[in-house]
Amino acid sequence: MHSQTAFTLVITGAPYSTQAPQTALAFAKAALAQGYSIDRVFLYGDGVHLSSALAAPPSDETNWPKAWAEFLQGNDIPAVACIASALRRGILNNEEQARYQRNASNIIEPFELLGLGEWVESIASTSKTLYFHGDH
């Protein structure tokens, strides 16, 4: 086991338009399998689309929000979507739905909407941070 190494993963590329969620998930599974831990997963910018419970891809394609949600829940890994990125792109929890008087909320569990303070804290305390970017 390598309990001294923990990763924070930051995903900034959206599912279906970039490979970022796919590469990050393959990396995350391989890391856990080798005994490394993942402190936290952050979605930032277009990456927040990965936390939409409303994604409805064809049944023969991977549902990336669902695949990530299952992985995070199964391994008790905290996951955060940047609230500033999320609100702009229509990713809401119940609290923000009420605040902005929208007709639905759509964030998939276990993702939470939080500010960047959490991110800074995690980067300060974790030993390795990896970014999974989009194409630009």
Binding site: A26, F27, A30, A31, Q34, K128, T129, L130, H133
Partner: peptide, 19 residues
């Protein structure tokens, strides 16, 4: 390398830059 190889590479690195 495969994904486990990528994990080892990143775990061993002093510093990582993701472009």
């Amino acid at each position: 390398i495969d994904y486990p190889g990528m994990v080892r590479l990143t775990a061993d690195a002093d510093r990582i830059i993701c472009w």
